[in-house]
């Protein structure tokens, strides 16, 4: 139980951190939390249910735009807007992916690839709503009358959501849905003959993962406070998948480690334009060949989900 003993000092450190480091590091940490949230959702889909999505940037984007627009137009307060945006994104995602979810894995990857491109296109073209290529600027959000106008406030919000997200994903993984998803991944037929509805749990995995992506997108919108369709392309979708893979598919700490890796990488190679991409891509390939359990494979077993 090394994991549990480490938990308290880790929590204390994370709570104190924004007071000891500069604004830029706080920003990077918040970004890491946000990416980690997406990766946790991707881990449910890919690590547990064995399905690949190449369109999660789109759900992230829908979450970002919907949260931004709902709050900016005064329709809903920030926390509710976040939730509403996530439900919207999940609904759209489930509808779009439903046909592919009944087929072989390959088709979900292809369908989501197409979906991601179309959503990005729609964000560019639907200028009246999204501002098109000019992007969308956002004022700082409020929570219960409090204006979150400094980086620290959002850091804590993101940290809290991440903690909740991790806990919930852990619950799912060790209960009925998690076991059903693992069975589906490794043997559809054995799962079916145990009474596990294949389509139902695939949809559940997909819906959960899009929900995580959309919540993260909503937080992201207010972290950067300027969103542009340009940022939500196929590259980002692959990066989300890559974070889970590099971190370790199916492990509890994996998505977080992957997000840390992904955020740190450009910092380590600042000024060399293509180096982060090269290293990240290589990490993906090499992780598959040499380290199928990812970075978390090096961690003790108690950290693992399964």
């Amino acid at each position: 139980m090394t994991g549990r003993r480490l938990l308290l000092p880790l929590a204390a450190a994370l709570l104190a951190l924004p007071w000891g480091v500069g604004g830029y590091v706080t920003y990077l940490l918040t970004l890491t939390f946000i990416y980690a949230l997406v990766a946790i959702g991707m881990n449910l889909l890919t690590g547990l249910a064995g399905q690949i999505s190449l369109g999660h940037a789109a759900f992230f984007a829908i979450g970002a735009y919907a949260t931004g627009l709902l709050t900016q137009r005064g329709l809903l307060p920030f926390p509710l807007a976040l939730l509403a945006a996530a439900l919207l994104s999940t609904g759209i995602g489930a509808l779009a992916a439903l046909p592919a979810l009944r087929l072989r894995n390959l088709y979900l990857a292809i369908a989501t690839l197409g979906f991601g491109t179309v959503v990005q296109k729609a964000l560019f073209e639907w200028r009246g709503l999204t501002g098109g290529g000019a992007g969308l600027e956002l004022a700082p959000p409020h929570i219960a009358g409090l204006v979150l106008n400094n980086g620290r406030a959002l850091y804590y919000v993101a940290l809290a959501v991440l903690a909740l997200g991790l806990w919930c994903a852990g619950n799912v993984a060790r209960m009925r849905t998690g076991r059903a998803m693992l069975m589906l991944r490794d043997s559809e037929i054995a799962a079916g003959t145990l009474g596990i509805g294949i389509a139902r749990f695939r949809v559940a995995a997909f819906a959960l993962s899009t929900f995580y992506a959309a919540i993260a997108g909503g937080l992201y919108a207010y972290l950067v406070r300027y969103i542009n369709p340009e940022s939500f392309g196929l590259g980002l979708s692959i990066s989300f998948l890559g974070m889970v893979v590099v971190g370790g598919l199916g492990s509890r700490a994996g998505p977080v480690l992957g997000a840390v890796f992904f955020v740190l990488l450009p910092e380590a190679f600042r000024g060399i334009k293509d180096a982060p991409g090269l290293v990240f891509g290589l990490a993906l390939v090499l992780a598959m060949i040499f380290l199928p359990r990812g970075l978390a494979g090096i961690a003790p077993r108690s950290w693992r989900l399964t």
């Binding site: 693992l182 069975m183 991944r185 490794d186 043997s187 037929i189 054995a190 199916g250 693992r304 399964t306």
Partner: peptide, 8 residues
Amino acid sequence: HPELVAGF
């Protein structure tokens, strides 16, 4: 042959 689920 029993179907194995990795990690079970």
